[in-house]
Design a protein around this nucleic acid. Structure first.
Lengths: 214, 214
DNA sequence: GTCTATACAGTGATAGAC
DNA sequence: GTCTATCACTGTATAGAC
């Protein structure tokens, strides 16, 4: 018999869907409990607070993600004393992107959650700001094309996103006060990443440097 | 005569300070207007809404940041047909990190704002989650040390932050559905960045490969 | 234990007087 | 421009029904 899920799970499901559609801050507990056909007080009974409910929604997905990551990491480390760097990085990256950019039903919904949670830093502030300063990024993209002629422009756009993400994350999380050293590291890291895509993917064999990873 | 600033500016200053200390969501308009010695309705009169006030606080700082970036970019592009990639990236990165990790009075306060705004994705959710899954990142750090023996561990920690930032940002912002291509690009980008720090900075000359960027 | 009804203090926003 | 008064709504807490 497939009875309706328990109240606790109905709340989690409704919360996940509404958070993804509207954002955390914009979704009220009354909306959630109404969609879950539960009483308002049930969420505080089962989870303790709205914040704890948000955490529970995340935990349900992140547990699975990190299990998948570690399983793939074990596979990359198994059998060899000298594991492959690319395989290690794939274990970190692929399960995450499959979750957010994949087509599976649950995954797709969770992608929108994560998108809201991490992009929607206070409602639509981030979207408004990045649109407002998009011209700055366009200027940098043009400059990099000059510095690295022949770079694939779609790939460059992605890589600029990588760099901006690394920079933003570092600005937000890093506790170190040593801005100079961090900046040096990030510049070196980003430059190597950008150069690697030029040397690896140029189809006309002018100066292929595939032996770069000897 | 240095009269007290206009109401509009007093609100901006108070909001910036309180947002930085408490976060957006946790700071009420009543706190702000009280600290600014203004009336509650003044914020809606001058800015229209709480969201618009947040945006105004950001714009005041980001305008200066992006001006500094573009000025430095122009400098990097001037005088040569073939600008230096590192100088371009420094123009993007250094002014931002100077603002958030520097010691200037205003900058330090703004650093805390940005930190709250971008890290404090819904109160302390992000802190709780990253603590909960910190062991996963530790496992990956260990794996990378095996794959890249001799890598500096402080630098590796920073670079892992770069990768996580790039990944998070991409999960949140990227609209492309092509998870496989994005993952490939990120893996290649990150691997090149990591390898560059090993080959460039090893002090014992065993296998210096500085000619890697020939 | 699970769930409900209800009450409460505090929020952002707004209309209208001064 | 500024202020007071008020509104609908929020998350949370509690007392009690099943």
């Amino acid at each position: 018999m497939t009875a309706t899920p328990a109240t606790c799970d109905r709340i989690l499901d409704a919360a996940e869907r509404l958070f993804a559609e509207e954002g955390f801050h914009a979704t009220s507990l009354r909306q959630i409990t109404q969609a879950a056909e539960a009483n308002l007080a049930a969420v505080n009974y089962h989870f303790g607070s709205k914040q704890a409910l948000i955490l529970a929604v995340f935990r349900r997905r992140l547990d699975a993600l990190n299990e998948a990551r570690l399983a793939r990491l074990d596979q990359a480390l198994a059998g060899s004393d000298q594991p492959d760097l690319e395989e290690i990085l794939e274990a970190l990256v692929v399960p995450a992107l499959a979750l957010t950019h994949g087509n599976a039903d649950d995954g797709h919904r969770f992608m929108r959650i994560l998108m809201r949670a991490f992009a929607d830093r206070d409602d639509h502030l981030h979207r408004a700001l990045s649109a407002e300063y998009a011209h700055v990024m366009r200027r940098f993209a043009s400059a990099i094309v000059i510095a690295l002629p022949g770079i694939d422009e779609l790939k460059l756009r992605r890589q600029l996103d990588f760099i901006v993400g690394a920079l933003t994350h570092t600005m937000a999380e890093s506790c170190s006060k040593d801005a100079r050293a961090i900046a040096d590291d990030l510049v070196q890291f980003a430059a190597a990443g950008l150069r690697s895509s030029v040397s690896v993917q140029k189809p006309d064999g002018a100066s292929r440097t595939l032996e770069i990873h000897s």
